[in-house]
């Protein structure tokens, strides 16, 4: 089983390396947010001192964790898209006929996708550091497991979505109905207290959004702090989404059985 695991992880890394434009696109998006939107929003949005921060911070510093989570979210969706593409092109059959348990195959895919997400985030954090948007040094180490966990959660969500999406063309809908609401209805760009003041109904949605907890886990980890509530949410959602994706890829119980043809 370990040989199969290694094969799947190596394949995902090779595919990532072969798709250089994917890597660039993954970096350009958060960098645009950081340097262009960040500059604009800084003037409009005042931030008070809220945990984990112990002093006033620049708006750009505030949005770095959210942008890291955004990188992971987009990578998870990219991975999900590639699963749908593989199914349409037929190469998914190879994976699903491997003589190893299906949960093991999906877990290997998930871990590979999370690993690629962490690599992308590391490059993003290095670029931010070069432009003087810096976190405590120890935070750069502490954030790696947090990013990996977030990668597992969002990757599992992507796996589940890929089992439900029947056609590649339908994927554009995912962008509108999953990625953007998840990102904007979270604490990635603005703190919860500001939303509770100005739009309490939206704030009540934000507290139920798993992406909010992904962002907060990363934010606290960057300051070498553990947000237990966020950790529990992320772990629980990872398990939930993974179980749903196992159901989604079960040839006997799900819609997938009727898609393999």
């Amino acid at each position: 089983m370990m040989t199969a695991f290694k094969a799947i992880v190596i394949r995902e890394l090779l595919r990532f390396l072969h798709q250089r434009e994917r890597f660039l696109a993954a970096l350009v998006r958060p960098l645009v947010w950081l340097f262009i939107f960040g500059a604009g929003f800084r003037a409009a949005l005042g931030l008070s001192i809220i945990p984990p921060y112990e002093t006033y911070i620049k708006y750009e510093t505030y949005i770095v964790p959210g942008l890291c989570a955004m990188i992971v979210l987009f990578n998870a969706m990219q991975s999900s898209l590639s699963m749908v593409y593989d199914r349409e092109m037929g190469s998914m059959r190879l994976l699903l006929t491997a003589p190893v348990p299906r949960w093991w195959i999906l877990l290997a895919k998930l871990i590979a996708s999370a690993f690629v997400s962490v690599l992308q985030c590391v490059v993003f954090l290095v670029i931010a550091w070069m432009f003087d948007i810096r976190m405590p040094l120890g935070g750069y180490g502490a954030v790696l497991p947090a990013l990996f966990l977030v990668g597992l959660m969002l990757g599992a969500m992507g796996l589940f979505l890929s089992s439900m999406i029947t056609r590649l063309q339908n994927f554009a809908g995912v962008m509108n109905f999953v990625i953007f609401p998840m990102f904007f209805l979270s604490t990635a760009l603005y703190p919860l207290w500001r939303m509770q003041e100005n739009a309490p109904h939206i704030a009540s949605v934000v507290v139920w959004n798993p992406f909010t907890y992904a962002v907060e886990l990363v934010r606290f980890a960057l300051y070498q702090k553990l947000e237990l509530n966020a950790l529990i949410w992320v772990c629980a959602c990872t398990c939930g989404f993974f179980l749903l994706s196992l159901w989604g890829y079960d040839p006997g119980k799900s819609l997938f059985s009727r898609k393999v043809r």
Binding site: L14, M89, S91, M92, V100
Partner: peptide, 19 residues
């Protein structure tokens, strides 16, 4: 076809061998 278009000939075979 069930080949991975992103990989080379030998990478496809090594991937399958690993599986």
């Amino acid at each position: 076809s069930a080949l991975d278009l992103e990989l080379s000939v030998v990478q496809n075979l090594r991937y399958f061998a690993g599986l």
